Simulated scan of single mutants.
Amino acid sequence: MAEVMSLQRKRTHPHKFLLWVAIGSIIMMFAGLTSAYIVKRSQAGWIMLEIPTIFWYSTVTILLSSVAVHFAVKAFKDRNIPKYKQMVWITAVLGIAFLIMQIIGFMQFSRMDIRLVGAGSNASYSFLLAIAGLHAVHVLGGVIALTVIGIRAMSARSKSYNAVPVEVVATYWHFVDILWIYLILFFNWMK
């Protein structure tokens, strides 16, 4: 019986396995997009990117959100539910702040009279919009997941201490954080 229990503890939960498959797929998608960026960069008419400063502020914001989700998982495992709830909501708010800063950053392009798509646009800025926009969609998905676990935590009926949903959301959140760091460094390195 002890051997069966040990084997069950070593198995990966199906939700965690599915998350890792999804993360692998997302990595491949962004690897393809950044590879296409590198190839396209060597063509004539390419304009070097100038990343708005607010993108760096959004980077700090998403890093802080990763710290907050780490403390949320720790609080959940320590059964400190009030702190867990607080950290989940702080993470979600920081995720929303990240998205707002991204929108402001792209609005700055239009104020600088830089067209991101359509006539008069340059592929470098279109790539930035497509890649950062796709990342923002993934962040939005994370914010929705954080909201769901936050609402569940607020529910008086829910007294589940299953850490798997919290760990899955936190792992995904750390992933979108690391992905953004890669992207911001990529775009600044590829100037």
Rank of each mutant, 00 (worst) to 15 (best):
L94M: 14
A72W: 01
G141N: 14
L185I: 07
H138Q: 06
L64Y: 12
V143L: 12
S126K: 08
L64W: 12
L185G: 15
R111W: 09
I96V: 15
Y125R: 13
V148C: 02
F187Q: 12
W89I: 04
M28T: 13
H138V: 02
I90V: 13
K191L: 10
I181R: 03
G150L: 08
I27N: 10
I178Y: 10
A36H: 04
V169A: 05
A119W: 09
A145M: 14
W189R: 11
I181L: 15
F76N: 00
A123W: 03
V21Q: 02
K10S: 14
F175C: 02
F187N: 14
I38M: 14
S110M: 04
L129C: 08
I26T: 13
Y37P: 01
D78V: 02
V137H: 06
H135N: 09
G133Y: 03
W56T: 09
L140R: 07
N188R: 11
A72Q: 08
Q43H: 12
T59Q: 08
N188Y: 11
V164Q: 04
K159A: 08
K83H: 00
I114L: 03
G32H: 05
A132G: 02
R152G: 15
V137Y: 14
S158A: 06
V21C: 09
A170R: 12
L183I: 14
K83D: 00
V169F: 05
K10G: 02
A156E: 10
I181T: 06
K83V: 00
V60R: 10
D113V: 01
S155H: 10
I26A: 12
I131P: 15
L128I: 01
G120Y: 11
S66I: 04
S65K: 01
H13T: 04
G105P: 04
I184T: 11
G141V: 14
Y161S: 07
F98N: 11
I47F: 06
V168R: 05
M29N: 07
L179R: 10
V4C: 00
F186L: 05
I131D: 11
F76P: 04
A97H: 08
L179V: 13
T91A: 07
I181W: 07
H70S: 03
S121D: 13
F98Y: 15
F109G: 01
K85C: 02
V21P: 01
Y84T: 00
A44P: 00
G45A: 06
S6I: 14
E50Q: 12
N162V: 06
A153M: 09
S160I: 04
K83Y: 00
S110E: 11
A31G: 05
I103S: 13
L63I: 13
M107K: 05
I100P: 12
S121I: 13
L146Q: 05
M154T: 09
L179M: 12
